[in-house]
Amino acid sequence: MIEIRIHGRGGQGIVTSGELIGFAAFSDGKYAQAYPSFGSERMGSPVTTYVRIDDRPIRTRTLIYNPDFIIIQDSTLLATEPVLDGLKPKGLVLVNTKKSADALGLNLNSRVLTIPAAELAMEVLGRPIVNTTILGAFAAASGAISLEGIRNALEHRFTKELAEKNLKAATKGYNFVKEKKQ
């Protein structure tokens, strides 16, 4: 089972990110579960979403304490919230920031990847809506979901026009990571 924890702020589309990753995995032929940790959340307050992907039906319904992957949609959370807690050794942290992984100085026994998602999203969407760009980057970095799965998830969730735009953003994020790897 793959466990993913997504951290961001209210209004950043964190819940949608979880739903989209889950749907992408589902359309890739896997079992998935997405579960937002709800409170009296407002715009700007820290929000977390949990996603599980497995080859067999998923029964566990608890929060995720030891994720394989952590996605941080707002890098300011690194300073204020225990967002890196419990990350598995050899896990992966994907951070939305213009800074390089080294400049973040996270000092982890895991892979850290950064992506300037706001800038990339601006190029395609004209607005700094980062979640779908990060989704593409996550697909490339983790291999947990496919770009095709993301396309299916976007088409399921959004209108045709919006799905196409967001697919472009996701592809941009995907290619950014693929190129960075080489």
């Binding site: 889950g22 749907f23 998935a32 579960q33 997405a34 579960y35 709800f38 998923i58 319904r61």
Partner: peptide, 10 residues
């Protein structure tokens, strides 16, 4: 509530 109402599953 939340655990089932707000979770996504197949």
């Amino acid at each position: 509530g939340f655990i089932l109402t707000h979770a996504y599953e197949p």
